[in-house]
């Protein structure tokens, strides 16, 4: 009998070309953006030589400083809240007896992945406007609540995956050895779940850091985050300063995503 070599997509005509085109489309814009962040001139399209001036100017820009701090504070609280909710939701959907409407609950938790962001943004704008009128409060809390909400599914999915991959008999063994349900969670579930929790939190952090649409609608005057500040800048003058900020954001995101991937791979 002839040896069955199986199907190998790499032998298809044009495979390498298509792959290269795809990678080019994905990374060429980013490579250009990063390159021009080091431009010594004021143009984002004409290369005039290497310099750090736009990084220095961004660093010294008070608006950028303010927006950066706000972005980080917001991402911290949003990811903390979202991760807490996500852990509870993941436990409730994997560690209870199967209940009626379990898949409906699953869909509801992941609602932010399905409802168009612009719709959520408008809805939040209306809701928060009502609350603002009623209470007079116009602080950062609105953004924290909004970000927490759409970050939940991003934190939930990796945590749930981790819980589902865990050996249930470990928790049963703990219960069998006289551990109360809380002790089971504290002593057996949590020590194995933490890579999932960290991964979920990091993903939520990056998602919050990156958000434009909802933030743009919900923020009050003077509450620019880094992305909305950049958007505002683009409407006026475009200098490589935006490139420099973007490059830093890319670096943070890549670091986080790499950390996320490594954490997801930690075995028990």
């Amino acid at each position: 009998m002839a040896k069955n070599k199986g199907f190998n997509i790499r032998r298809q005509t044009g495979f390498t070309t298509i792959a290269l085109v795809c990678f080019g489309m994905l990374y060429l814009p980013i490579v250009l953006l990063v390159t021009y962040s080091f431009n010594s001139g004021t143009s984002i399209a004409i290369w005039e030589g290497f310099s750090w001036r736009w990084y220095q100017s961004a660093w010294a820009n008070e608006q950028v400083q303010e927006a950066t701090v706000r972005s980080l504070v917001l991402a911290f609280w949003a990811s903390l809240t979202a991760t807490t909710c996500a852990v509870l939701a993941a436990l409730a959907t994997t560690r209870t007896r199967k209940f009626k409407g379990q898949s409906a609950v699953f869909a509801m938790i992941n609602q932010p992945l399905m409802v168009p962001e612009i719709v959520t943004a408008v809805a939040l704008l209306i809701l928060f406007a009502m609350i603002k009128v009623a209470t007079g409060y116009s602080g950062l809390l609105y953004l924290v609540v909004a970000h927490s909400a759409f970050c939940i599914p991003f934190a939930y999915l990796p945590i749930r995956a981790r819980l589902q991959g865990m050996d249930l008999s470990l928790e049963q063994a703990a219960a069998d050895l006289y551990a109360t349900p809380f002790q089971v969670f504290r002593r057996v579930t949590l020590p194995q779940l933490w890579p999932g929790i960290l991964a979920g939190a990091m993903l939520a952090f990056v998602i919050s850091l990156d958000d434009v649409v909802i933030t743009e609608f919900v923020k009050s005057a003077g509450q620019d985050t880094l992305p909305t500040y950049m958007l505002g800048q683009l409407r006026r003058v475009i200098t490589p300063e935006v490139n420099a900020i973007s490059t830093v954001l890319v670096a943070i995101s890549v670091t986080m995503v790499v950390a996320f991937t490594l954490l997801s791979k930690i075995k028990n």
């Binding site: 050996d167 008999s169 470990l170 063994a173 703990a174 050895l177 057996v188 194995q192």
Partner: peptide, 14 residues
């Protein structure tokens, strides 16, 4: 007041 020896042993890996 019972304890179990599991088929998979279920030892705590951590």
């Amino acid at each position: 007041p019972v304890n179990t020896v599991f088929q998979s042993y279920a030892l705590f890996p951590h």
